[in-house]
């Protein structure tokens, strides 16, 4: 087990290095650096100064090594596009909480409601409610985020002014700010939650109905266990296994934010910032965001696999599971 974890961690580090190298090389070999934008351009002297400031005059390999050494210490250099060229990490620390907050509400809503819906649908299979839940789930999975967002804007945005794209929502996590669950969060969270909620509901339904038909359940009933004990000790425990592997990887997505939702609803979070930084060719910023998000993903997959082994003894025995 320890060896497995160590091996996977080493693989994660290797993958991160390779991915960062690819992005780094691509980014540094494009015609048109961050300072070639704009009508006037810079004089050769000013350009040389700027390049020296951002370390762009050194050879590529040295720059990459410098970057990696810095990145390990969360030092990603200075933004080239944000006013005042603040350190990249400062900008990230300022925008991420906004995204995290929307993500946190979304996770609570999606997983909570999805589990309830899925379990209910499994216990009452083919009832009208089951059909309704399945229908919503399909819509949630199939329709793109920004399409749902636009529809919701049509339905609610008109009447109530919720999710007005011109209004800027700033995270009120601090006490005394606007209420934590203000209406401004309503549309983004609903939009954002629909797809993961649909996934959760769909997988819960499948997992719970499979567990409901299993032999050990009949045995448990025959032993005279109460419905509640059966549900908690038998149904849920077994239904957890597929849920864990499918659903845990959803979390980094939700925490790093959706570009589309943040753009549609004007949320000044990480996702919106990523788009702006790409459009402005803010390389240090882009690089940092890609790597952070990739790292977050990799970590979640690793944790998922370890949890999978903890929850399901069968996996532990046939250890070398190819992923």
């Amino acid at each position: 087990m320890t060896r497995y974890i160590l091996g996977r961690t080493a693989a994660l580090i290797f993958v991160m290095l390779a991915a960062s190298a690819i992005v780094f090389v691509l980014m540094n070999n494009i015609p048109g650096g961050p300072f070639s934008l704009g009508e006037r351009g810079y004089s050769p002297d000013a350009l040389a100064n700027l390049e020296r400031k951002y370390g762009l005059d050194k050879p590529l390999l040295e720059r990459y090594v410098n970057f990696v050494v810095g990145a390990v210490q969360f030092d990603f250099g200075y933004s080239t596009a944000v006013a005042g060229s603040p350190p990249v990490i400062d900008v990230i620390l300022r925008t991420w909480p906004v995204t995290l907050q929307v993500g946190a509400y979304t996770i609570v809503l999606a997983f909570g409601l999805g589990l309830v819906m899925g379990t209910f649908a499994a216990y009452h299979r083919n009832s009208p409610l089951d059909n309704f839940i399945t229908f919503t789930a399909t819509l949630g999975i199939v329709l793109p985020n920004f399409i749902i967002a636009t529809f919701l804007l049509f339905i609610f945005g008109f009447q109530n002014g919720w999710g007005d794209p011109n209004k800027i929502i700033i995270g009120p996590l601090t006490p005394g700010g606007t209420p934590v669950l203000g209406w401004d969060y309503f549309l983004p969270v609903i939009t954002y939650a629909l797809a993961p909620m649909a996934l959760v509901a769909r997988y819960t339904r499948a997992a719970v109905s499979e567990a409901l038909g299993a032999d050990y359940l009949r045995t448990a009933r025959a032993k005279g266990l109460t419905d509640r004990t059966i549900m908690v000790r038998h149904v849920f425990r077994n239904a957890m296994i597929p849920l864990l592997t499918v659903l845990l990887p959803q979390i980094p997505n939700l925490l790093t934010g959706s570009l589309f939702i943040e753009v549609v609803y004007g949320i000044p979070g990480l996702g919106k910032f990523f788009v702006t930084s790409i459009l402005n060719r803010d390389y240090p910023m882009t690089m940092a965001l890609i790597l952070l998000i990739a790292f977050f993903w990799g970590l979640t997959y690793l944790i998922t696999d370890i949890l999978y082994m903890v929850v399901d003894p069968r996996v532990r025995l046939t250890s070398s599971r190819a992923r």
Binding site: A19, M27, I30, L259, F274, I278, T286, I290, A294, W297
Partner: peptide, 14 residues
Amino acid sequence: AVPPLLFTIFLLSV
């Protein structure tokens, strides 16, 4: 390892 959407956006910006 790299989220596909981000990578695509990045490629397009390049």
